[in-house]
Design a protein around this nucleic acid. Structure first.
Length: 571
RNA sequence: GGGCCUGUAGCUCAGUUGGUUAGAGCAGAGCGCUCAUAACGCUUUGGUCGCAGGUUCGAGUCCUGCCGGGCCUACCA
């Protein structure tokens, strides 16, 4: 049987992520993981925090903490939020793990052996006051082109002209404002990916079914200008993975670390090794997912990410993997996403604009967010969060269509037959029609999930929920009960049986509500292969309880209040 | 500047290789039901498919130009 390896782009460590980050990778990957598990496939679902780089060091400094301590704390915070949103990672690792250190150094050594690493001497700006080298965008000054006084060293935000830090007039550190800067000569390692261009190009071209967003970005980088360029994979920083060839020192690279974008994707593999260790398993347990010489040839590997991550996953990381000359598993499918905007602008971590994961969970249960985000996941273009739309979608879909269905039938049954599935009567033409409709829709639903068409899957699921209300309305057991209680009993039995079916099908999207439905019906999730059988699974006499209101509606007042609460920081 | 994506009913979006009267959900209108979270069901009003040309027997779908929105452009990650 095919095994499914799923990775979500690693959330960066410097702060709590907003809903845009969540919907652009982790949430859809979770749906896919849950769906595949429900289909009975063996799944390995991996994520981790991306912990290295300048922004992590600065974020730590801001809190007055040591960077390692800061990262350890933030990792726990992010891991708890992931749990709060029901993200079902098999393992949530850390790119700073010993496993990632070893593997990153190992792969760099292999790349060097294979002639894919080049040493380049370059000039970099050093800030004496900050005691660190400054990445281009951490240097500010006056734009030589338009005179804008807060132009960054990589580009002027005002006139969009591309710049070098040395072009700036009166340059200063963006961190401290210090003008005590000097240009120093420093050596770095470059990954010679230009030489891999044809190989990568052929590989990308062979991926006919990838989203256009994925391949068009890859092709742009492969063919723009002079084509794919070599890329620096080391930095002059303290926090990171020390540059080594395997376990050997690398002459001239003392005190330097690998660039985060080199070590972050490697963490997908290393995190699986962390998983093995955490579960007391030996190396073969993770290698069977990642080494095609050790059992991974039947693995299907799917990556999820926002569009900003695509170049690294389509080019740099494959170059690292292929260039190692070792039989590592390459990605089979890359699902990429556009951005989610917030109420007429962008979500912004730095400006505190939008709704952040911790705030979201403080306000409402995770299923509310999961459902809205997944029905609006930016698959074809950027999408937008508004409080009105959020309220309308959640109230209608979750409270009215699904929640109220469960409520109306369980309460009706309790009133007329008691809290057990009633006996009597038989299923007839109306039930057969519902079975036929759900069978058809289930097929479409499964096809959309296989293809990772998340929005289409949500609308199919909703239609399956709605079928229950249509059925009840036509069957009208409340009227029939007066003249033919047995016939009413059959209708109620059939409708009650829809609840566990709905729970099983809904679990990838709203796992908490699905669990509540199953608990109320006193049964377990089973993915239906035969809808007729599934709707005959709760026998007469089976006890259940009427669940509490599954989804309380968001009132207009509550909506206005939330909107106001989050409007404060808008710019 | 260059590249890519995008513009379809009031809103959010589907529209397969171009093929008859352009679809769904929500919102609006009407009717019905009363089991249910004033929930549900049925019916129904909305669209010169951004604009202007072109190719074609035929264009939402292909081509050109223009207008609007977004992203990327390699040292943020």
């Amino acid at each position: 049987m095919t095994r499914i390896l799923i990775t979500s782009a690693l959330p960066y460590i410097n702060g709590i992520k907003h809903l845009g980050n969540l919907v652009g990778s982790q949430l859809p990957s979770d749906v896919y993981a849950r769906f595949n598990r429900a289909m009975g496939r063996e799944v390995m679902f991996i994520c981790a925090t991306d912990e290295h780089g300048t922004p992590a060091e600065l974020a730590a400094a801001k809190t007055g903490q040591d960077v390692a301590e800061f990262c350890a704390e933030m990792h726990e915070v992010q891991a708890n939020l992931a749990k709060g949103f029901g993200l079902s990672f098999d393992y949530f690792g850390r790119s700073s793990s010993p496993q990632n250190h070893a593997l990153t150094q190992h792969l760099a050594g292999k790349l060097a052996e294979n002639g894919l690493i080049e040493e380049v001497s370059e000039k970099q700006v050093y800030s004496n006051t900050d005691g660190r080298y400054l990445p281009d965008r951490y240097i500010e000054g006056e734009c030589p082109n338009c005179g804008y006084d807060s132009a960054r060293g990589d580009q002027c935000e005002n006139c969009t002209k591309q710049l070098n830090p040395t072009d700036l007039i009166n340059p200063r550190s963006a961190i401290s404002g210090s003008t005590d800067l000097e240009v120093r000569e420093t050596k770095h390692l470059y990954l010679k990916q230009a030489g891999m261009r044809d190989t990568l190009d052929a590989w990308i071209n062979s991926k006919k079914d990838w989203p256009i967003l994925t391949t068009s970005i890859a092709k742009k980088w492969l063919h723009d200008g002079d084509g794919l360029r070599d890329r620096g994979i080391t930095r002059d920083l303290d926090w990171g993975i020390p540059v080594k060839r395997g376990d050997q020192d690398w002459e001239g690279m003392e005190g330097k670390v690998f660039y985060v974008w080199f070590d972050a994707p490697i963490e997908y593999i290393a995190a699986t090794a962390e998983w093995a260790e955490a579960n007391g398993l030996d190396a073969s347990a993770w290698e069977r997912w990642w080494r095609t010489d050790k059992g991974a040839e039947d693995v299907k590997y799917v990556q999820f990410m926002g569009k900003d991550n695509v170049p690294f996953h389509t080019l740099s990381f494959p170059c690292t993997i292929m260039g190692s000359g070792e039989p590592w598993k390459l990605v089979d499918y890359i699902k990429s996403f556009n951005y989610l905007n917030y109420d007429g602008g962008q979500f912004s971590t730095s400006k505190g604009r939008g709704v952040f994961m911790n705030q979201a969970l403080d306000i409402l249960p995770s299923d509310y967010w999961r459902w809205w985000l997944l029905t609006h996941v930016p698959e074809s273009s950027d999408s937008e969060f508004t409080w009105e739309n959020f309220q309308a979608t959640v109230n209608k879909d979750l409270a009215d269509v699904l929640g109220n269905f469960v409520s109306r039938i369980t309460k009706f049954c309790r009133a007329k037959f008691g809290e057990e599935v009633p006996a009597g009567g038989e299923y007839g033409a109306a039930e057969a029609a519902v079975i036929a409709e759900i069978t058809k829709r289930l097929k479409a639903y499964e096809a959309h999930l296989e293809a990772i068409e998340i929005r289409k899957a949500t609308s199919e699921l909703r239609a399956i929920w709605a079928a229950g209300n249509e059925y009840l309305q036509n069957a009208a057991p409340w009227a029939l009960f007066k003249t033919d209680p047995d016939a009413a009993a059959a209708i109620v039995r059939f409708a009650l049986n829809l609840i566990p079916l709905y729970a099983s099908l809904s679990e990838p999207f709203i796992p908490d509500a699905a669990a509540d439905m199953l608990e109320a019906m006193n049964t377990k999730a089973v993915w239906p292969t035969d809808v007729a059988k599934a709707l005959d699974s709760l026998p007469a006499g089976h006890a259940f309880t009427v669940p509490d209101v599954m989804f309380a509606k968001i009132t207009d007042d509550a909506r206005d209040q939330m909107q106001a609460q989050f409007a404060g920081q808008n710019t």
